Computed example of a mutant assay.
Amino acid sequence: MPKRLKAAIAAAVLLVLFMSAQGTAALWRAEAQLELGIIKTGTLSLAAGNGTVSSQTYVFKELNTSTLAPGRFVQAPLTISNTGNVELRYTLNGAVSAAPTPGEADAALAAAVELSVHAVAKASDCGVDTPSPGAALYQGPLGAAAAFAAPRNLAAEASGREILCVRVALPNNALQTAAGGSLALQLSFRAEQLRGGQQ
């Protein structure tokens, strides 16, 4: 085979290889321009209070357990407010006695009492001796597992509030070891943002 023909064939093969490589590189290259939207975050915030004053660490002075006696109950209204700007759902997330140095009588009292929480239309529906209307959101002993049967929804900001009637009762058959005990009720609530269409 003449040298020229061999050189022409070799050049043609190199040209084909070179063009194939160029075609491959073009297949891997792509560009696109994206229009970025605006991302905004919301504020998730839940507070408790008496209808006038509220905070995330509210001291519930209105519920005075010092007058608690067997066969009796004490109760007071507690306002739960959505102080954020997103709709949320919340639930009771534990109810315990948080006495700083609990003695035997304190522990016996905490074990004997029954907590019930009701939703009411207005604070006066939860007066000193007023029976709580409707079904209880929670009714049972104190404990870290205390929770509402179903979460409650609250709208955002000003309209997002609910009045709860918190009742602590001491049954007639409470043990004598609970006499003289004190109760420092600590209610914890957990909230989460509602996603679109979630109920």
Rank of each mutant, 00 (worst) to 15 (best):
E114R: 12
A95K: 11
S97Q: 09
G94V: 01
C126E: 10
L92V: 14
A108L: 04
P151E: 14
A144D: 03
D106K: 05
L92K: 12
H118F: 01
A108R: 09
L92M: 14
I163M: 01
A110C: 09
P141N: 11
C165M: 06
A123Q: 13
A107D: 09
E157W: 13
A135Q: 14
T101H: 04
G127V: 05
A136Q: 05
T130S: 15
P100D: 13
L137K: 11
D125W: 03
P100S: 14
L154R: 02
G160K: 04
G134E: 02
A108N: 09
D106C: 03
A145R: 09
G140K: 01
A95Q: 12
A158G: 10
A158Q: 14
Y138N: 11
P151H: 11
P131D: 13
V120L: 09
L142D: 10
P102T: 05
V120H: 08
A149T: 14
S124L: 13
L109M: 07
L154T: 02
L109I: 04
Y138Q: 12
A158C: 01
R152E: 09
A98T: 09
N93R: 06
R161Q: 12
P133D: 06
G94W: 00
S124F: 08
G127F: 05
L109N: 07
D129Q: 09
L92T: 13
S124I: 12
A150D: 03
E114L: 08
L154V: 04
S159N: 07
Y138R: 12
R152H: 02
P102A: 15
P131R: 11
E162V: 13
G140A: 01
A98Q: 12
C126R: 03
L142M: 11
A147L: 06
L92W: 15
K122I: 14
P133H: 02
A149D: 15
A144C: 00
P151L: 12
L142T: 07
V113P: 07
L92P: 15
N93V: 07
H118W: 01
S132D: 08
L137M: 06
A105V: 05
